[in-house]
Write a protein that binds this DNA or RNA. Sequence first.
DNA 1: TAGTTAATGGAACAGGAGACCCGTTTGAGC
DNA 2: GCTCAAACGGGTCTCCTGTTCCATTAACTA
Lengths: 215, 215
Amino acid sequence: MEQETRLSTEPTTPEAAPATPGTVRPGGRTAKVRAAVLEATQDALVEQGFHALNMDRVAAAAGVGKTTVYRRWGSPIGLITDLLHDMAEQSLPAADTGDLEGDLRANALLVLKTLTDPRMGPVFQAVIASAACDEECATALNGFYTTRLREWAPAVARSVARGEIPAGTDATEVLRAVSAPLYYRFAVSREPLAPADAERAVAVALAGARAGAFR
Amino acid sequence: MEQETRLSTEPTTPEAAPATPGTVRPGGRTAKVRAAVLEATQDALVEQGFHALNMDRVAAAAGVGKTTVYRRWGSPIGLITDLLHDMAEQSLPAADTGDLEGDLRANALLVLKTLTDPRMGPVFQAVIASAACDEECATALNGFYTTRLREWAPAVARSVARGEIPAGTDATEVLRAVSAPLYYRFAVSREPLAPADAERAVAVALAGARAGAFR
DNA sequence: TAGTTAATGGAACAGGAGACCCGTTTGAGC
DNA sequence: GCTCAAACGGGTCTCCTGTTCCATTAACTA
């Protein structure tokens, strides 16, 4: 977020106050406050959605002073951006089933499970909406998916090595092709998501990969 | 132009006040006001984005009383929802190039052009964010894409009739497969969109269709 | 063309989000 | 343990958002 709107003073002077609270003493209380606030943010998103996300309510639910929430996160979008950074840190290991179809299916089902999860669904909804409002949040979201792609790319690379799909296939594009139809339904066309959608996404991506459409 | 989304009061009583302004006398001034407000809404989205969309500023830019804007649209999301209804009414005829690949390419390039358009891009960004916040807007967005799918489905049906792809292929799923990667980049992973992305989307959807992945 | 009233618009009002001040708590280094 | 200042938290204030009231304008109907 942009808390630096307030600090117009150059931090050249030695006695300049710290630009971002929570960076000098990240231990103990500061960490507890962050955990409580992000938890309360998630709760609020699940219960009322992005539009109703409110700094005062989050502060109250987290048992934290609202001044603190304003100072450290600045705005609801700041909260969501930090939540996104937190999510990006939690890495799940990618699958390795032995063939591409199995790996892609595992990936598709993971995405499906995440988006239809009663807790993660609203969070992703909010994250996507926030990214549409704020460039910094958009960058964080982009980084989140970049990380995920990097984790799963080896699955496609192994498939190329096995000769299942043509050499020169762009691994990340294959993975994007698996996720895209699910996210499209979830965030854009607002249609219900079912396991059949995951299966179809896998089948189409696989057909495309075999046909060399990702080179 | 269906603003009657807000009228929950039954108009049974004769003396009942008009539930929704603009429905009894839609001509002349009322229509002009709507056009000016929607235009100003678009301008605001292009210049400052969804997050900065503000009823007062829209009213001022449209040269309209802010009372009117609040009364007829209620909130920024109400503005965007109406804008969406307005967009849904403007129908572009689908292509008919003679083969499926040509039709799908025309569709993909249309989507690409829309999303990268300096005016329509921010509007779609806002519409997607609004739909994440508001159920009524989500329904309107879903309706928008349902209309578009209905317009383009014949292209796929013709291809089935020509024997290019298997009988029983779900026409709308093929079209969704073309749009999904583009919208995914645009709204979710926030990656730049290029013509190559449209080409890839067509190639993958086509490979999937030929392999029978959409049956 | 005249009458009725739907719809608009200006202005004043109320409520709440967000910023600021300053005393209190507590993490980090010795 | 002790010290210092980073970070927190309660209270207060201000400005902006959204509402209400009522006079004015101009669509529809006869």
